[in-house]
């Protein structure tokens, strides 16, 4: 357990000192949000309708952008071999890295989302479901993304391939995540969509570290 916490703390420290931590992700999130009105026009009605879906897509992209560094740096400098040799099972090491990734991307985005939703003129009843759904659903981005990151860890230009591998896995979460907001704004019950997001997160929490660790072992052997 102490190895798990040590690895988590190391990754968080690295994220804060080298990559700017959560702020870089937030800056990306903000920039993309600023591009939307510039791209589709500043009609408030249109923006308000598209806001929830767009913020979910932006969250997926923000996760994707940082995913290709998830194992890459460690694979290059040999840290990954050390992790595989250590007492901590590789599956738990993957989980620690996913958790660190989510704490620096998914979690800050969830809290920033209402502010950006305000910029995009989203109706106020959507704020709570948007934040909650991002909190519950965005771990899937880090977890399922880790599978793709592990598969492409040893490759020199894995970034583009990574998005092709991972985006299909994001489809259900984006559908139900944005669904929670549009259902709430339509005055319907969104409990089912929330339950689905929770199920997807738990499912990924159990299976993704196994698959990602198996993929990492390919590159280590």
């Amino acid at each position: 357990m102490s190895a798990f916490i040590a690895l988590l703390r190391r990754d968080l420290t690295l994220a804060f000192r080298v990559g700017g931590g959560p702020f870089l992700g937030l800056a990306f999130f903000l920039t993309v949000t600023a591009l939307l009105p510039l791209g589709v026009g500043a009609r408030l009605g249109l923006l308000g309708e598209a806001a929830a879906g767009f913020l979910w897509v932006a969250a997926a992209l923000a996760a994707l952008l940082s995913l290709d560094r998830l194992f890459q740096a460690d694979a290059e400098d040999g840290t990954l071999d050390q992790l595989a040799l250590g007492s901590l099972p590789l599956e738990l090491a993957v989980l620690a890295k996913c958790l660190a990734h989510w704490l620096t991307t998914g979690l800050p985005l969830a809290f920033a989302a209402p502010v950006l939703a305000l910029l995009l003129n989203m109706p106020i009843e959507g704020y709570l479901p948007l934040t909650l759904s991002l909190l519950i659903g965005s771990p899937v981005f880090s977890l399922a993304g880790a599978i793709g990151a592990a598969l492409t860890a040893g490759l020199r230009r894995g970034g583009l391939l990574l998005s092709l591998l991972v985006l299909p896995l994001f489809v259900p979460v984006v559908i139900f995540g944005a669904g929670t907001v549009s259902l709430a704004m339509g005055g319907q019950s969104n409990l089912g969509a929330f339950l689905f997001l929770g199920a997807a997160s738990l499912f990924a929490l159990v299976l993704a570290p196994l698959a990602a660790a198996a993929a990492l072992r390919i590159h280590l052997s």
Binding site: I147, L151, P168
Partner: peptide, 19 residues
Amino acid sequence: ILCVVGVINIPIIRFSVEW
């Protein structure tokens, strides 16, 4: 590994887009 992950995901995608 990718193919196996994809097969697990296909029914989920199928169900979610139908919904």
